[in-house]
Computed example of a mutant assay.
Amino acid sequence: MVLASWYLSNRSTLWRLDSTLPPPGDCLKIPSSKPVLSSLIQGMRYLSLLLLGPWIVVLACIYWVAFKRSRVTWLHAAYDMMVVIVALGAAYGLALVAYDEVVIQDVGQLGRESGSIWKQVMPALYGYGAFAAVMVLGMALRFAFWRRKRAGTRAL
Rank of each mutant, 00 (worst) to 15 (best):
W64C: 04
L47H: 02
V72K: 09
T13R: 14
Y92M: 10
L21R: 11
Y63I: 04
G89N: 06
R16S: 14
L3I: 13
A77I: 07
A98H: 01
D100A: 13
I30E: 10
D26K: 13
G93D: 02
L3R: 12
Y7C: 12
G53V: 05
M44T: 12
M82D: 03
L50I: 07
L47N: 03
L88Y: 00
V103Y: 01
S39L: 13
G89S: 08
R45C: 03
L8H: 06
S12P: 00
L47R: 00
L50W: 03
F67Q: 00
F67C: 00
L50C: 11
G93Q: 05
G43M: 09
L37W: 09
S19Q: 12
A77Y: 03
M44S: 15
P23N: 12
G25S: 14
S38D: 12
D26L: 10
L49P: 01
V103S: 08
V2D: 13
Y63S: 05
K34L: 08
P24A: 13
Q42V: 04
L49Q: 04
Y92K: 02
L17H: 12
P23G: 14
S70C: 07
A87Y: 01
C27N: 10
Y63G: 03
D18R: 11
I85F: 13
L17N: 11
F67L: 08
A66W: 05
Q42I: 04
V84L: 14
A60R: 02
G53A: 10
S38T: 15
K34E: 10
R11G: 05
V72E: 08
P22C: 06
V103L: 09
Y63E: 10
D26M: 11
V84C: 08
S5K: 13
V86G: 04
P22N: 11
V72H: 07
V72A: 09
D80F: 01
T13F: 06
G25T: 13
S19A: 15
D26H: 06
S33N: 15
G93E: 02
A90L: 10
V65H: 06
G93F: 03
C27P: 00
N10D: 12
W64T: 03
S5A: 15
V58I: 10
I56N: 00
R16L: 09
C61T: 09
H76Q: 10
L3V: 11
Y92F: 14
S12R: 09
V72F: 07
S70V: 10
L88T: 05
I85K: 04
A90K: 01
P54L: 04
P35I: 01
K29T: 06
A4E: 11
P24R: 13
P22H: 07
K29I: 03
P31A: 06
P23Y: 02
L75N: 09
K34G: 02
D18L: 11
A98N: 02
K68I: 07
I41A: 15
P23R: 09
E101I: 01
S70T: 13
D100S: 12
G25V: 09
Y79V: 06
